[in-house]
Amino acid sequence: MSNDILILAEHLNGKLADITNEMAGQARQLAGALGGQAVAVLLGSGAQALAESIGSDRVLYIDDPALAEFNPEAYARVLAAVVAQRQPRVVMLANSSVGMDLAAGLAVTTGLPLIAYVNALSAEDGRIVATSQIYGGKILAEAVPAGEACLVTCLAGAFRPEAGRAAAAVERIASPAPLDGLKVQFVRLIEPEAGDVDITQQALLVSIGRGIGGAENIELAQELAEALGTVVSASRPVTDAGWLPKTRQVGKSGLTVKPKVYLAFGISGAPEHLEGMRGAELIVAVNTDPKAPIFDVAHYGATCDILDLLPALTERVKSDT
């Protein structure tokens, strides 16, 4: 086994995902401590320029037409072959739509342990220690893999990105695994439909979560937003339930917003939601649960019932303006 840290580079629509260089930064630190190198693996086709933009020590660029778009089966085959050949200490994948499809399957094929939802990763006396955010962000668990090597999936925003480095040496190779006879076929990308409003352009957002209780209460948030001259955004359960259109969703699989003020009403603050709004200038959270993780990122908070607060605030705004 080597002491190298392998990173799966992630890219979509010709753009490198931010988390790739976040992982590269962390991998370089860890590799430094272990006496190895941070090696990014980029799977693609005609993606040499992307490979050159990664801040790792080295980049392994695997070029094949079958890798032009993300395909979980093709990626899994290639990664398993790379890991078998290179025997890294740690394989870092993003805890993203891509990484989540691959990591656990790779754990089975390589026999390596997987620690998911990692937001801190270090070496202690040569042993890997990873901290995971579990139970919707309410609990942290510090784990050590049974053997020397392991796989981890990393949370977006957990590590400082590697910036301003000279391009790493890119080694371009053909796929080390056969890519024919795939049972998963990529068909096309489907761009999101434009919504009636663009929540990313608002200076103020009234954002509601499952705490709103039901479709019949959405009105309370709409009335407040109207009085404030803005719009309502939401967490995933609200859009999944069809209470608001998908275009209003903030978070990992929704939109990233950076308003001046984000009012989070009845939102628990799961890591996937925080990913989309932690960049807001000021966050105010109202949630009946004083232990809700949203209070860890909010600047101001209150524990009242939003079904009382929403009408009270609407009243107040109307009487003030």
């Binding site: 342990p113 997987l114 620690i115 955010q133 962000g137 309410k138 609990i139 942290l140 668990a141 510090e142 784990a143 050590v144 893999p145 049974a146 392991c150 959270a285 004083p290 232990k291 993780p293 209070f295 860890d296 990122v297 909010a298 600047h299 101001y300 908070g301 209150a302 524990t303």
Partner: peptide, 17 residues
Amino acid sequence: SSVRRMFKPEAAGQAEM
């Protein structure tokens, strides 16, 4: 892999309530 320690986030209560 084994969990050697579970704990609550230290930043808890960052918000001014």
